[in-house]
Each structure stands twice: as C-alpha cells, then as structure tokens.
Computed example of a mutant assay.
Amino acid sequence: MAQQLAIIVLVDVGSALEANTLQGNTFLFDNMKLHGSEGQGTGDLVTAIHGAYWRDGSQATEQVLNWLPYSLGSIAPTVPRGYEADRARQSDSQALAELDAITAKPDAAGSDPAAELKQIRKAVGTRVKTTRRTKGRLSGQKILDVTGQVVTDPTKDAYSYPGPVITDIYGQAVDEKIMYPAEYGSPDLVTDGWYWSATVDSSRPGTYAYTMRIQLHKLVQKGSETLWEPVNMTCESKLKVTTEPKVNGFTGAGLGLLPIRSTDRGGSMYAQGPGPHDTTA
C-alpha cells in the first residue's frame, strides 16, 4: 500500500508580492523529518522518499505526495467556508442599523452628519469586484483583516491576502518520470475543493528537483474599482529517493518464515511470512 506524505507550502504573501519573488518568502515542511528530510521550515526543503524493493529487485513500495499551500499572516484556512460572506452580511446589517438610527433621530444641535456617514462607510467596508479571472471564493467578497473585520481603506489599513494556489508542478523529477503529479478534486473545503498530489517511483535512488508554479493575488485599484490581480511565481524543491530491501518488521531479516514460540511445548515453530505487519527497513 502506498505511503502518504504531506508537504506544507507556507507563503508570506505580502512580502512575496512586495519583493516580486517567492525566494526567501516560502517555508516548506513535510512529515519525514525523522526519516531524513532536510531544510525543514526553509525554502530549500529536500523531502526524503523511502522506497523498497523485493528480492528480485522490483519496486515494493511507492510514495504518494500531497501538497498543501497556506498563507502566512492571513485568515486561518480552517474557518468555515462561508466565513467571508457571513462577515460581509454582518457588516451590511450593521451599516443599515446605523443608517436607520441616523434617520430616526430628530435634528439636534451638535450632531455631525459627516462623521456619522464616515462611520457607516467604515462599517460597510470595501468590496472587491468580481472578474472572469477571480471567480469562486474571491468573487465579490469584502476585504477583511486577519481578525475578520472589514477593511474600509486597503491603501492604509492592513488586510488579509487570499491563500496561495498551486497551478502546476513540473521540472526534473517530472521530466525523468520520478513522480507523476496531477490536480485532484476533493471534498476537503480547506483546500477549496482541489489539491495537488503525485505518485513517486521510489525504485530509482537519487536527488531530483521539481518546480511549483504558485499563483498569488495582489490587490489593485483600477479607477473606482478594487480588484484581486493574479500574480504567478515559481518555487523549487527537491526529492531525495533512497531504496532499501523490504524486510520483516518483527525480525529485521528478509521476508520468509516468521518464528513463533509455542506456549505449550516450549519449542519453536515457524509460520509463513510476510504477514500483515511487514515494513521496510
């Protein structure tokens, strides 16, 4: 059965857009640190791939990789899928309530309509225009900060960026057919219904580079409209494939008969291996 391996791609989106590069603004992690992965938490991750082969030299175990991109300093991806829409409706309701309060109260000395309208605009926030290239989760949503509050003036106030999106995986490891990446549909709403996965041929030891094309979104002002503009960048990582012979998980020896001690005669007897608990060295 294939082993599952997760690779976290954590991007400082704001810094990457400002520097126009993912270099120094991407941090990679996987769950193979104790098995030989190098460069955890940096942009130079080398993911350890432990393959195995049978006695005849054929491949015994393949590896499955899953890439999960996240944004550093943005709204947590674990909030409910409709969180942005809920916050937008709440801000609209608040603005309408404040507007009703202004129209309901009688004219009074000392009131400042301009200040009151400014407060209403603050409650309304800024809504991003929907375009053909920003459909889906970015469509028509209001701009929020990392605490979930609507942002009135994105040119002055800090705001949360949409999460990075992997749009392609290519390079040496793909060209040499070490791994076979593809994008898959998923019911996992955290990944917005899509994720990248790959099967790795773990029978060919060596270090192989691959490149991820990652799409970020930059907030731009065009006339009176605010838009999320896609920006494509690339990030490189590596796989280090090692292979070991498949062995018995109980004895550490090759596959074959598994010694079992008899409790009634005190002797030993042998059962045919490999059995359900075999593993790789």
Rank of each mutant, 00 (worst) to 15 (best):
G206E: 07
K246R: 14
K105G: 07
M233Y: 02
A182N: 00
V247H: 06
L257Y: 15
T147F: 12
A16Q: 08
R204D: 08
G41Y: 06
V64R: 15
E229G: 00
Q149T: 10
Y195G: 01
M212V: 02
R133I: 11
I49M: 05
V165M: 12
S91Y: 04
K177N: 05
S93C: 04
K33V: 13
Y208D: 04
M233L: 14
T26D: 07
G24A: 01
P230Y: 01
A101D: 12
V11S: 01
A16C: 02
S58A: 07
I7N: 01
A115K: 13
I49R: 06
A198V: 00
G171V: 03
D264S: 15
A209V: 11
Y270C: 05
A123V: 02
M212N: 00
Q272C: 05
Y210I: 00
D112V: 00
Y53P: 08
E225L: 10
K33M: 13
G163E: 14
P259H: 02
V241E: 06
A281N: 13
E229T: 08
V124S: 14
T42H: 03
Q90S: 09
L65E: 06
I214R: 00
P164F: 02
A60M: 04
L65D: 03
N25R: 05
P181W: 00
P205E: 07
S237I: 03
T234F: 07
E18K: 11
S262L: 12
G43S: 10
Q40A: 05
M32V: 10
A182C: 03
D44G: 08
Q23P: 06
D192T: 04
L257C: 11
T243A: 15
Q40L: 08
I166M: 01
D278L: 10
G256D: 06
T234I: 13
G185F: 00
L45Y: 04
S186W: 00
G57T: 06
V174T: 01
K129A: 07
G171W: 09
P77Y: 09
H35G: 08
A198K: 00
S160T: 05
S74L: 03
G171S: 10
Q141T: 11
S93G: 08
A6E: 15
R87M: 04
Q172Y: 11
Y83H: 02
S186E: 02
S139E: 10
G249T: 06
K218W: 03
